[in-house]
Design a protein around this nucleic acid. Structure first.
Length: 579
RNA sequence: CGGGGUGUGGCGUAGUUGGUAACGCACGUGCUUUGGGAGCACGAGAUCGUCGGUUCGAGUCCGACCACCCCGACCA
């Protein structure tokens, strides 16, 4: 591909609204353009990377016997009503009517379609197990997109679905996918770690998220360096040691003007935050009022809270009026005297004696509150976030917290979709059974961005060989001065094209500075320079983009590599080699 | 949806007390230049996010709206 013909433009200045390196570089190097919030066009270079990522995923899916197919982006809403997700999912599911006034949705994912296909096609246990996948556009009207390709509203995802006779079969499929994911991320040049994850709205019995560590990551990971324990903070259960035992003292009102936060309360009373109880108020999607009590030195974990109270439709913060209506006072709240509320208490609170809690009166708290002596919980469970330094549940070593980006996930769905959509098969036993499903997703664009996050320097991108849009970037210098330069470069370019592996060829009449700077920004793994100087030194100069290692190569040798698709031998340019 | 911010040519920006838009990069033409974002000359490109208001006159002042970005909420 001649750069003079390529549909792209490099930018000298950073676009002002790009913060992450991947976003900045993909924009500056001409891989990407934004159309709207969370909506992007992939320019030819970006599309080639995406296709190469896709091909890696395809090969690994095929390798474990997953069959490629394609399912639609627009679905009749009927199907989503059958699964119930039409009612459970909020505005991120785009709904509209077609010309016939029929309710339609834009696909966020494809479990319903797979289940409906199973309903039509799978009749017998002999047809199972079976796995399918496709690469397809998803649309999710995210409340807030961010970070370039990291969180978008429209994106292409590889989603795979396993279909098994029973849980044992699901476990087997899940392990196959897990292993395939490890191979995929390794080939993509990503150091992904699998963490235990919440099953969320997908339901089901287990899930892992594949995460790459990144300071811009939206998820918090709880990691143990000693034993390898890794969970998303949403579900990480860490032990909390027993507080010092004390005799329960009688409750005692204490005036606490303006102490509406734990911080202010602890300061005002001169006690550590661990001697206070924090109340948080929520309303579930099904209309129940929840008051959650955690110790003042911990934060409420909403995922755990949702799972504890089995909240359908999630949680939203309660309004001040709703809190008052239950006999409580925001800022001075506790279950003391509360009514019509589901009281959920963190298990550590039960073990912690004589805490300061809200009096449900403005300006007042109560000392020496003890559970269950002073109020009765409806649920006692761990509903707090793990903190850095808390003991690992496996080995007791203090855990660390890191931010991560989810590059892939795998879910054990179970039988919910099959049951609701009606995907049953006849077993060997002659009985009807629901198909047991699993769901496995990888977002292409997000992976492209994460590859750049992991493979760049201050000059630009440095693609791993496996995903580079072109294997090499051919640069000519002083072509106007020495006719041999263009002649040789043209020949090398043609040779690569004939060998079926196009290379990028900067045939523009630009100054050397522009050409080298662009080559480093664009990030092909090999930069090949043809110039009067390189010819005098014996042929071409080749530079490994990632390391900067550089050496002179005879033209015949280079031609040989190009015929092999620029398969440079592993003993290519060595560090320290010079012209 | 709450908080903060930004909208001026493709990108980055300037624009004073209100007087009809400027600079760098990129772009076109010509000449020179060619191993690290070249030089000179000429040139094209903006109804200043939109609508309304104040004013003789609005990029600038006022109001509403829209878009985008950041933090939070949210996130199969």
């Amino acid at each position: 591909m001649r750069l003079s013909q390529l549909f792209f433009a490099t930018l000298r200045d950073d676009p002002s609204d790009a913060e992450m390196p991947s976003h900045r570089l993909l924009l500056r190097a001409g891989y990407l353009r934004q159309l709207g919030s969370g909506i992007y066009s992939l320019l030819p270079l970006g599309f080639r990377v995406s296709q190469r990522v896709e091909q890696v995923i395809r090969e690994e899916m095929d390798r474990i016997g997953t069959q490629e197919m394609e399912m639609p982006v627009v679905h009749p809403a009927e199907l989503w009503k059958e699964s119930g997700r039409y009612f459970k999912i909020g505005p991120e599911l785009v709904r509209f009517k077609d010309r016939g006034e029929r309710d339609m949705v834009l696909a966020m994912t494809h479990e319903e379609v797979v289940a409906s296909l199973l309903r039509d096609i799978v009749k017998s246990y002999r047809q199972l197990p079976m796995m399918v996948y496709h690469f397809q556009t998803k649309f999710r009207d995210e409340p807030r997109s961010r970070g370039g390709l990291i969180r978008v509203r429209e994106f292409v995802m590889k989603d795979a679905y396993s279909c098994d006779r029973d849980d044992a079969g699901l476990d087997r499929s899940y392990r196959l996918q897990y292993a395939a994911y490890e191979r995929i991320f390794k080939r993509l040049g990503l150091e992904a770690i699998a963490v235990g994850a919440d099953v969320g709205i997908m339901g089901g019995s287990g899930a892992h998220e594949f995460m790459v560590i990144n300071e811009f990551g939206e998820d918090t990971l709880v990691l143990c360096d000693a034993c390898g324990f890794a969970d998303n903070q949403q579900i990480a259960m860490v032990g909390k040691p027993d507080p010092e035992p004390e005799d329960a003292l009688p409750m005692e009102d204490v005036e606490t003007p303006d102490a509406t936060t734990i911080e202010a309360l602890a300061t005002f009373l001169g006690v550590p935050r661990s001697r206070t109880a924090k109340a948080a108020f929520f309303v579930t999607g099904d209309g129940r009022f929840i008051v959650a009590i955690v110790r003042g030195d911990y934060d409420v974990n909403e995922t755990k809270l949702v799972n504890t109270v089995k909240a359908r439709g999630g949680l939203r913060p309660a309004t001040v009026e709703e809190i008052k209506a239950r006999g409580m006072e925001a800022g001075y709240g506790s279950p003391l005297g509360a009514r019509d509320a589901v009281v959920v208490v963190d298990e550590l609170v039960v073990r912690s004696p004589n805490l300061v809690a809200g009096a449900n009166r403005v300006g007042w708290h109560v000392r020496n509150v003890n559970v269950p002596r002073d109020y009765t919980p409806d649920h006692v469970a761990e509903i707090t976030n793990a903190r850095a330094g808390d003991p690992c549940p496996n080995c007791g070593t203090p855990v660390t917290l890191r931010q991560g980006i989810e590059v892939g996930n795998i879910f054990k769905l179970g039988t919910d979709f099959a049951n609701s959509i009606g995907a049953f098969y006849l077993g060997e036993d002659g009985e009807r059974h629901p198909v047991v499903m699993g769901s496995y997703g990888i977002g292409l664009g997000r992976n492209v961005a994460c590859i750049v996050e992991a493979h760049h320097d201050d000059k630009g991108i440095a693609w791993p060989d496996e995903v580079a849009p072109y294997a090499a970037h051919l640069v000519t210098i002083s072509a106007a001065k020495d006719p041999r330069v263009a002649e040789i470069a043209d020949r090398l370019h043609a040779l690569a094209a004939e060998a079926g592996r196009d290379i990028l060829y900067d045939d523009r009449d630009e100054s050397p500075g522009v050409k080298f700077t662009d080559a480093e920004l664009l990030g092909m793994p090999w930069i090949v320079t043809i110039s009067p100087r390189s010819l005098a030194a014996g042929g071409a100069e080749i530079t490994r983009r990632a390391t900067g290692d550089r050496r002179s190569v005879p033209l015949e040798t280079l031609e040989g590599w190009l015929r092999e698709g620029f398969a440079i031998p592993s003993d290519g340019p060595q560090a320290g080699a010079s012209l």
